[in-house]
Write a protein that binds this DNA or RNA. Structure first.
Lengths: 333, 333
DNA sequence: TTGAAAGCGCTAACAG
DNA sequence: CTGTTAGCGCTTTCAA
């Protein structure tokens, strides 16, 4: 039983000829006796031999693979985007290569090296910042790119108005008659990931100001994300006096954790405390939680579709799409 | 004046390093000082160097890509397995190619063609059945395989005792003093996906019998999965007279939906109705829901690790791992 | 973290 | 017509 993939050496041995002969037969050189040729081809068949180079050097117009670069797919928002991408790839004409990136250096490495190899027809960048130098590099090597959560006039992009999202949250809570607001978000996000927490907070503050409400520092909590961390954040925020009657969470994941803490404390939701998340994940649905939907699946699907259409026809006009945000009002507000 | 395309030798000379170092930089290996990396990339840019993919492929021991074949990653259980896989790939020495399969034909297509293609060092099959013919084909072409949720003596596999899982659910509910049980699961699962619902049901029934309890047909609901479908299933089951005081759901996703229906009906959980899910997903945690944990992340991680170790050393003994199931008791029971 | 040197699978001289 | 052998450009030990 062969374990390694067969090579021309194996074929040569099996056919009782030299590797040269095998090479010649495989390359249709006329320097090859017909009987020999048959012997070689028979061995090729027996071994199921496929020349290695052919496998990847298929002189195709494109290689049929698109890459997705993302920080991880631990959190539901990335998952739902990926789900959209998979849907947009539709049918499997393009394969999907996933690159999870854990720090700036690795990201830079991928961005500089991937375009050189030409093993990828295009790249979807999720929540990855892209400076002018990287952009130029990618363009110079003809790599098609779609950015999600990071606008870039040189490439297709799919974004959402995070500032407006914050405002929507504020408006929604104000409409619900809430008055003492709090925000729980992230900070210290590594610099290879796009940071949006502060933008949403800023919108939130603006939205509240428009309603004549203030957000004192004590009601703002930002910290690097971890499940335990959010529990602490929630605990601290709920302990502030007077305690808030509404919390806007940077993500549904944050909101879910806050909800748990609130329930454990015996708070009635939404009577004692309103909670609104951000993302529009399935999780929010299962938790019957109000959230700002940012059409995650759709963003992934669009990214894939745009990318493929640009791969097929390089001249296609760039699209910089801004998806609508919507409040999905549910039981937590 | 040479017209020849530049090679790593040229790059190495220009950057004043060895070809080894150039190779490492090009492959984004972590063994490469940042300054060195920059020097090399600069030389690459200057020379307009493009690595020859076929030479690389030839010299490589393996291509550095593992594939995952799975039906979709819509449901949290797949996501968590994928998360584990990503963790097991650890560091990016291997890239991840994802193949989502929508029907039997597509599965067969991938399984017959991927081993020939040689673009993959190994394959992780999630919830995919594998007959003798496919097995032989994969083996014949030296493809390393790890099966999750489907035992196969020819390959590494990672499984869980679903029958036992059903029993555990029954025992847990009996301990909680429950007496009128119901089961909500799936049926009509397409034949390219491993079907486990009935096995869990069977274990559930056995576990109940051991406790002297019966499960009449009316308390068993099976249907092709959809969110609305589960809502209907739950509604119907809760309408049976006398109504059940405990439900075992085939998956956490089912359980989540049932929980929602129960709450909407004003049932107190767990006083009026106990709900136990299966999977041990984060979702169950967020919902404070009891579940049978099957160590999803761990299964993915192990699969990746086993696969890589077999790729590195083909002779390594096959491992057929059976992971432990655990009841995670939470507020829903 | 780096480099020297021994491969990788295949093609291309060149000799027979 | 066929085999020997020296590369090709890149990767992978292994030792420093």
């Amino acid at each position: 039983m062969k374990i390694r993939a067969p090579t021309i050496y194996d074929v040569a041995k099996k056919a009782g000829v030299s590797i040269t002969t095998v090479s010649r037969v495989l390359n249709n050189s006329r320097l090859a006796n017909d009987a020999t040729r048959r012997r070689v081809m028979h061995a090729v068949g027996q071994l199921g031999f496929v020349p290695k180079a052919d496998a990847s050097l298929r002189a195709r117009k494109h290689v049929g693979i698109v890459g997705v670069v993302l920080p991880f797919f631990t959190s539901p928002s990335y998952v739902q985007r990926m789900r959209g991408v998979a849907a947009g790839l539709n049918g499997g004409e393009f394969e999907l290569a996933v690159y999870t990136v854990k720090d700036r250096a690795q990201l830079d490495g991928y961005l500089s090296v991937l375009p050189l190899w030409r093993r990828l027809d295009g790249l979807i960048l999720m929540s990855m910042p892209l400076d002018a130098k990287r952009t130029a590099h990618l363009q110079a090597h003809g790599m098609e790119v779609v950015c999600i959560e990071f606008g870039n006039p040189q490439f297709c992009s799919i974004e959402v108005d995070n500032l407006e999202g914050g405002k929507m949250a504020a408006r929604h809570l104000i409409e619900r008659g809430r008055r003492r607001f709090a925000f729980i978000g992230e900070t210290g996000i590594p610099d290879h990931i796009v940071h949006l927490s502060d933008l949403r907070l800023q919108g939130f503050v603006q939205g509240m100001q428009a309603g004549g409400i203030d957000l004192p520092e004590a009601y703002i909590s930002r910290r690097p994300y971890s499940r335990e961390g959010v529990v602490e954040q929630a605990t601290e925020i709920l302990d502030v006096e007077p305690s808030p009657d509404a919390v806007f969470a940077y993500s549904d994941l944050h909101a879910a954790e806050i909800l748990k803490v609130a329930r454990r404390r015996g708070l009635r939701i939404p009577e004692d405390l309103s909670i609104i998340g951000f993302d529009g994940t399935d999780l929010a649905d299962y938790l019957n939680m109000t959230t700002i939907d940012q059409q995650l699946d759709e963003s992934g699907r669009l990214a894939a579709e745009q990318l493929i259409s640009r791969i097929r026809e390089h001249g296609r006009p760039l699209q910089n799409i801004r998806l609508q945000l919507n409040v999905i009002a549910r039981g937590s507000t």
